[in-house]
Design a binder for these strands. Structure first.
Lengths: 229, 229
DNA sequence: ATATAGTGTGTATTTGTTACACTAAGTAAT
DNA sequence: ATTACTTAGTGTAACAAATACACACTATAT
């Protein structure tokens, strides 16, 4: 404990809305809190920002601690700062969303002291969340809905090789509506950022679909030309 | 001074990118600092968030102190939190942009202690700015560029009654490119959110243009249907 | 009356969006 | 081998939106 200027009596935390695509469902990562306030409640993963890390670094760290994964697509989307959002003092929260490739079965770790466990939950079936985390989640979902219409972030949720149908599913889940298969393919392929591989889906009990890869190089060139659905 | 938890050794401020449209130019509001650090430098208007105000309230207060105006269109757009962005400690900054109607000659007040004066400056001719304010400005400009393409925020920069040419000018300045007059009008009018008045421009030495008003009621109905330029 | 400066209007072309239904390929069961 | 099943993959016509483009009108000043 040390003396500080009175105006320094405040702190800031990061909260993450981590989206994952699993078994045809759009899910987010939640933790069960092991500390007061809101002990035993579900909450978004988050933590206090350390004094020697930037906001982006802090967000990466939190996700790394929770999933063991680095190099994850993350973006800051809003800062929540209502006076009473935290019962123990003035804590504002800088919110990030992240898109995670599941599937390679990167196990989510039960972590550090403040959380008992971490788990995935369908976005349409969330429990009551601690603090103002419901609001943070909603704003995060709204943001990626908007984002996916203009930039191809959907790839971040899929494994490296994917089928067009899988990609379409991701779009449909995020946008919350059905898309026409032919129109979707026509448009998606017309952007020229997908590379068709010489490889087909395996282990399915029906006609196997072609696999595609996202071509980051071509995308980088095309950046600025916006995409819309 | 009182004792606080060690992690509370940090604070947060608001910085505002305040856009104004004046004499055919797009300008932002700057202050000249009267305090260390960066004494005598130009900077974006900003201040420490009080312990009993939300972020939005704080942003409004700062603008009110500076301009005497309330009810200004403002929106939070990003939070800047690099470790060393403030030389005297860990200070993150929540950035807002604001759009201001000039013209009724709402004088900008030289204000409180931390600023010697406030002044407008063309966005294409900015001085060197304190802290990371150049970056904040750039991100703010980028945001309103994106925003204006989808929602009709341009009205916020104009007086209540305006001509279509004035509106087009605002779009051109923000987007940084010329637009076709006929196409602009066609599109703008097709949204149905402009009301033509029975009134013409006065005091010009050429054919006077019709005046229009923005119809907030109709706009509210239409919200969700996005606009694009 | 004339020069000037900005207002206001229409159409054709191209581009993008939507709606819509069948055949092809592979697997599994018999 | 045949059949049933399930998903993959494909084209076109109708419609809507975006773009490119040029001239006559009106108010004022001299």
């Amino acid at each position: 404990m040390k003396e500080v200027l009175p105006q320094f009596n405040s702190t800031f935390s990061i909260d993450c809305v981590v989206f994952g695509f699993d078994e045809g469902e759009l899910k987010i990562l939640l933790i069960e809190r092991n500390e007061e306030p809101f002990k035993d409640w579900s909450a978004l993963p988050g933590n206090i920002v350390d004094s020697d890390e930037s906001l982006d670094q802090s967000a990466s760290r939190i996700l790394k601690e929770l999933t063991g994964l680095g190099d994850i697509f993350m973006e800051q989307f809003y800062t929540f700062g209502d006076v009473n959002r935290h019962p123990q003092g003035r804590v504002i929260s800088i919110a990030y969303y992240a898109l995670l490739r599941l599937g390679g079965d990167k196990a989510v770790k039960p972590i550090s002291s403040y959380a008992k466990k971490a788990f995935w939950k369908n976005v349409n079936d969330l429990p009551r969340l601690a603090f103002d985390h419901q609001m943070i989640f909603e704003k995060g979902l709204e943001k990626i809905k908007r984002r996916i219409k203009h930039q191809p972030i959907a790839f971040e949720l899929l494994p490296e090789k994917f089928t067009l149908t899988q990609l379409q599913n991701v779009y449909e889940l995020i946008l919350g509506k059905k898309l026409d298969k032919r129109n979707f393919r026509k448009k998606m392929l017309s952007f020229g950022v997908l590379k068709e591989l010489d490889e087909k889906q395996k282990g399915v009990s029906f006609r196997a679909a072609m696999l595609y890869k996202f071509d980051r190089r071509k995308y980088a060139k095309l950046f600025g030309k916006e995409i819309s659905f």
